[in-house]
């Protein structure tokens, strides 16, 4: 599924790299621990997290993720968005809590296993 479809179906707010939503989302991962994401997230994953600081943009870039969804309506820091924009990495916001958000993505066919 393309990131663009996820944005539409889950009513996500696009905060950065709005021109880069054609990426194929090939899996998903949820974690608020950066090293866990570095170790276990895969290229093309959508990453769900509560973290909002600039380092998430570096992690998303290094892991070549499809994008990052920040749950519970948390607003990313300005510097985070600046960095994400520079790396063409989409950061999205969902109003939903992580459990519900992930459940809905799973229903749409996105899996945490490959």
């Amino acid at each position: 599924m393309k990131l663009k479809e996820l944005v539409e179906k889950l009513d996500l707010e696009v905060k950065s790299a709005s021109g880069n939503l054609e990426t194929e989302v090939t899996g998903g991962y949820v974690s608020d621990l950066l090293s866990d994401v570095m170790a276990n997230c895969k290229k093309g994953d959508i990453w769900v997290t509560l973290q909002i600081h600039p380092n998430i943009a570096a992690v998303g870039t290094l892991k070549e993720l499809a994008g990052i969804i920040i749950n519970n309506s948390r607003e990313p820091e300005e510097e985070t968005l600046k960095k994400a924009e520079g790396e063409a990495l989409p950061i999205l916001i969902s109003k939903l809590p992580a459990f519900e958000l992930v459940g809905r993505m799973y229903e749409l066919g996105i899996s945490g296993l490959r």
Binding site: L33, L34, S35, D36, M38, Q51, H53, N55
Partner: peptide
């Protein structure tokens, strides 16, 4: 901040 997980 999500660092210091003892995984580095």
């Amino acid at each position: 901040m999500g660092f210091g997980a003892g995984m580095g």
